[in-house]
């Protein structure tokens, strides 16, 4: 069985579905038997969620106004826009 250290290193890639089948299976097998790594996995999933939902800075209203006005002036038929 692979070591906890190896599992933790590949945990995010595992959750992202980016491991090859062999590595993916090895981690699943490890997680069936290791409570600590299961905790790490749940926590890594929470962290991914935090990055997906809380990382976007809000656009200030004045910037939004300027950029929307800019968009209004865009014209794909004019290469000099």
């Amino acid at each position: 069985m692979i070591r906890c250290r190896d599992v933790v290193e590949r945990l995010w890639a595992y959750l992202d579905g980016e491991l090859d089948e062999t590595d993916h299976r090895a981690i699943e097998e490890h997680l069936r038997l290791c409570v600590r790594c299961c905790g790490e996995t749940e926590f890594a999933d929470e962290l991914r969620g935090v990055l997906a939902t809380r990382s976007r800075p809000e656009m200030p209203t004045d910037v939004k106004d300027v950029l929307e006005e800019f968009i209004d002036g865009l014209d794909p038929t004019n290469p000099n826009t």
Binding site: S55, R56, P57, E58, L67, E68, L74, D75, P76, T77
Partner: peptide, 24 residues
């Protein structure tokens, strides 16, 4: 066809996400 309205709609919808990436 190249459609001015389509680009503007896309740009408006994606503006918050584009600004967020640009900010980083």
């Amino acid at each position: 066809t190249v459609d001015r309205t389509s680009l503007q709609e896309l740009a408006r919808a994606e503006l918050p996400g584009l600004y967020a990436l640009a900010r980083y």
